[in-house]
Design a protein around this nucleic acid. Sequence first.
RNA 1: CGGGGUGUGGCGCAGUCCGGUAGCGCACCGCGUUUGGGACGCGGGGGUCGUCGGUUCAAGUCCGACCGCCCCGACCA
Length: 480
Amino acid sequence: MDMANGKLPTRAEDFSEWYNQVVLQAELADYAPVRGCMVVRPYGWALWENITSILDKRFKETGHVNAAFPTLIPLSFFEKEKEHVEGFSPQLAVVTHGGGEQLEEPLAVRPTSETIIGYMYAKWIKSWRDLPVLIVQWGSVMRWELRTKLFLRTAEFYWHEGHTAHATAEEAKEEMLRILDIYTDFSINEAALPVLKGYKSESERFAGAQITTSIEGMMQDKRALQCGTSHYFGQNFSRAFDIKFLDRNNTLQYCETTSWAISTRIIGAIIMTHGDDQGLILPPRLAPIQVVIVPIFKNDAEKGRVMETAHRLFAELKGAGIRVKLDDREEVTPGYKFNDWELRGVPLRIEIGPNDADRNVVTLARRDRPGREGKSSVPQAALPPTVSGLLDEIQRSLLERATAFLNANIHQPGDYEELKSIVADGWAFAWWCESPECEAKIKEDTKATSRNIPFDQSGEGRCVVCGRPAKVRAYFARAY
RNA sequence: CGGGGUGUGGCGCAGUCCGGUAGCGCACCGCGUUUGGGACGCGGGGGUCGUCGGUUCAAGUCCGACCGCCCCGACCA
């Protein structure tokens, strides 16, 4: 096993470098030889698998099926939807040669698959009986990003993209919201990320969408990170790709379509929401290793007693379905292991030394409460339920802490000057007339953009920028 | 693409001003002692100094061109 090394900068010193070092030293990912691309290492991929398996289950429970479409898409497909081409053309990687020959038509490496899936849907959908079509693709896509950062923005990234076709606008919008709710529930209850859901402003909308909804999280530097999106396209793509069906009255209709995605970016959100100066803190429900056992001994006599206990408790915890690891490396000291597993964010550590073994106890150390405060001594008897309970408690406390942080850093500005000072170090929740001009002014003055607009609104106010009547309040923040 | 940096064992750097055949820390390998918060000693292995060209008896070092990567901006999940 590779060992971690080096010290982390503190979050206060340099949040960005802290983030980079956590990703690298915890061995979640590494830089690839291709500019802007990352290698997701086994520990990072294990985390991603825990995320994907939960989401996959929820999609299947709601009637979705998985399929795979090609990585390469004829370049001409991107010309078919006007806004889509404008949005994605600058970011395309294009294959011009194959087998040593120049291709007749260049092929884009997919930046997202609406076009090719739309093309196939046009072939497959003929009748109202064929609808809805609810397909999810798990894979990677490529966007030629100018500035990249591990997990947050890489040229190639992993995700799922759901693409659905429906007979009516109502059904399609319901689908968009159903998925947004799955995303929200997943983020809050599995990842312990207290995200806020809403719809996007015109300028923040996905290229080609009529409605874009999102969930937005607040990182510890108070910048916003979009953690998932769900789009309603209306008939934009079905008209561009001729996705039509005969309804019950034998009338030809265009489908209503949606698409939605969560990417490996959410790993960045987990890191930047929960981590501390020791490194990663993973929510127990997603952690590849929930519990690590660190045996401690000085000589062979102690080793025998301690390891016997360690193996026995390891088997008990594993049998109870807890993801547990026994760190039996002898070439590094216990102190090294403590730091190593803290860096990797394992939620709970079990220390077993000669004293513990003799007294039939173990020492537990919670990752979310560093130092002595998080340590306790518990009986070895009935350890699995004790550990399960503590993992639940850690999961709860991570969400609670992140939620308190979120709430403490959202403020309602009384006027524009106040908005400017709020978004310098937090989020503003402000009345807005929804005009692109006012949003553009905010962006120009502060670099903050509208993150999203909650669905449930009450009352009326005056736009914080122009003073005209405003029906909604929106979140404004600097975003990743 | 604009601005700023930087390329020397796996990683981080020194050496470049003033040319003389490459060094330090970490990591790695071996042996021994250690082990309840990042252990120590001794002994090892590993580098055509980003690339190409030029000057010179001699280039990591001087000159020229090119390339890569990182950071800051415009674009984005």
